[in-house]
Simulated assay, not measured.
Amino acid sequence: MKFTRNHYFLIGILLILFGIQFRLVDSFVLNERCTKALDRVMRNTPVASNDPFSSFVMQVHPNPTKRVRPPRWIGAAMVVSGIVISLHSFSLRRH
């Protein structure tokens, strides 16, 4: 499959939208299935901590979950690369 102008534009727009989402969201909480899969892959991160708040949450919601906090620069990098790819799509020939 050959990438056309529309494909590059779509990829750029998606990167911009994902980058904005990463900039606006502080953290993501994974469900139990994703937490177990991530634990099998990483094998060195604890699933739950022993602080009082976590023990209270475990009583209310007993399934182990992992909180992922992406760095702030990832969102900015995605937005900038999406802008560059979208602008590049305008320089390509029309199909």
Rank of each mutant, 00 (worst) to 15 (best):
M1V: 13
F3A: 11
F3D: 08
F3C: 10
H7T: 11
F9A: 13
F9H: 09
F9Q: 09
L10Q: 05
L10G: 02
L10P: 01
I11R: 02
G12H: 01
G12W: 03
I13V: 15
I13Q: 04
I13F: 06
I13D: 02
I13W: 00
L14K: 02
L15V: 02
L15C: 06
L15G: 00
L15R: 02
L15T: 00
I16G: 00
I16A: 02
L17E: 08
L17R: 04
L17C: 09
F18E: 01
G19T: 03
I20D: 01
I20C: 08
I20L: 15
Q21E: 12
F22M: 00
F22L: 04
F22N: 01
R23W: 04
R23E: 07
R23M: 10
L24P: 02
V25R: 12
S27C: 06
F28N: 01
V29F: 08
V29N: 07
N31P: 05
E32N: 07
E32V: 06
E32Q: 09
R33H: 08
C34A: 14
T35L: 06
K36R: 13
K36L: 14
K36P: 01
A37M: 13
A37Q: 13
L38N: 00
D39N: 08
R40Y: 12
V41A: 15
V41L: 15
M42F: 12
M42Y: 11
R43L: 07
T45D: 10
T45K: 11
V47H: 07
A48I: 15
A48P: 00
A48S: 13
S49L: 12
N50E: 14
N50D: 14
N50A: 12
D51A: 07
D51Q: 07
P52W: 06
P52L: 08
P52D: 06
F53R: 12
F53I: 15
F53Y: 15
F56R: 14
F56H: 11
V57N: 09
V57Q: 12
M58G: 11
M58P: 03
Q59D: 14
V60I: 15
H61I: 15
P62M: 08
N63P: 03
P64F: 01
P64I: 08
K66Y: 10
K66N: 05
R67K: 15
V68T: 07
V68E: 04
R69S: 08
R69Q: 09
P70A: 06
P70K: 02
P70V: 05
P71C: 07
R72F: 13
R72P: 05
W73D: 08
W73H: 10
I74K: 03
I74G: 01
I74T: 08
I74V: 13
G75H: 03
A76G: 12
A76P: 02
A77D: 03
M78V: 07
M78E: 04
V80W: 10
V80E: 01
S81N: 02
S81Y: 04
S81K: 03
G82M: 01
G82V: 00
G82T: 04
I83H: 01
V84M: 11
S86H: 03
L87K: 06
L87I: 11
H88L: 13
H88Q: 10
H88V: 06
S89P: 03
S89D: 01
F90T: 00
S91K: 14
L92A: 04
L92W: 00
L92G: 04
R93C: 09
R93I: 05
R93Q: 12
R94V: 11
H95A: 14
